[in-house]
Simulated assay, not measured.
Amino acid sequence: MCGAELTALPEGVQRVARALQDKAHPHAPQMLDDAARTAQQAADALGIAVGQIAKSIIFRRKSDDAAVLVVTSGDRRVDEKKVDALVGKTGRADAEFVKSRTGFSIGGVAPLAHATPPVTLIDRELFRFEEIWAAAGHPHGVFKLRPQDLEALTGAPVADVVQTL
């Protein structure tokens, strides 16, 4: 990407693409034909296992109203008690909170390039896979990475944040 092609992308995807370029990430965002608002939709569109989708879940920390981003494997459910033990008591974040804090709409929240940097945790279950895919700032936008790349791009710790199967 030289930069000129970014202007054809939605604003959120442009932000993600610039952040990836700035960190020399080898994979630019791709736009899917259909929306991938859920991990299953994204996995189906990419022809991969649902667990390879790095889904971004936003919580609202009660003590300071900070956004808490949990990037988890698409086939797992976040255990809010485990998250709370790591970052303090959280609650649900509505669509308005998510958009105002991240700059992204639900269904397209990327793990980086947020309007306000969130408190971030990475689900260790993502490390089961060699390759994963994350939202790129729009319900149609995704980008490829490795779990180790996610750790490097976000600077976030890897933790046990999901419900036991």
Rank of each mutant, 00 (worst) to 15 (best):
I132T: 14
K99L: 12
R101H: 13
I132P: 13
R101P: 01
F127M: 07
V83C: 11
R92H: 14
R101M: 15
E125K: 14
P117G: 01
A115E: 07
R77A: 10
G91R: 13
R101Y: 10
A113K: 01
V70Y: 10
G74H: 12
S105H: 03
P111C: 03
V109W: 01
E125M: 13
K99P: 01
K89M: 09
T90A: 07
K81I: 02
V119K: 04
A113D: 03
P117I: 00
F127Y: 15
K89C: 05
V70I: 13
E130D: 14
T116K: 05
E125R: 12
G88D: 15
F129G: 03
R101N: 09
I122L: 14
V98Q: 02
E130G: 14
T116P: 00
F104C: 04
R124T: 12
D79N: 07
S100H: 10
G107E: 09
E130I: 11
E125T: 14
E130F: 02
D79M: 02
I132S: 14
T120F: 00
D79G: 06
A110K: 04
G107L: 10
R92N: 08
V71S: 08
I122S: 11
S105I: 05
E125H: 11
G88Q: 11
E96Q: 11
G91H: 10
R101I: 03
K81W: 04
I122N: 12
S105K: 08
V68L: 05
G88R: 14
A67H: 02
D123L: 09
E125W: 08
A110S: 14
R76T: 05
E80V: 12
G74T: 10
G103N: 00
K82S: 09
L112W: 03
K82Q: 13
V109Q: 02
S100A: 11
G103R: 00
V98N: 03
A113G: 06
F127A: 13
E80K: 15
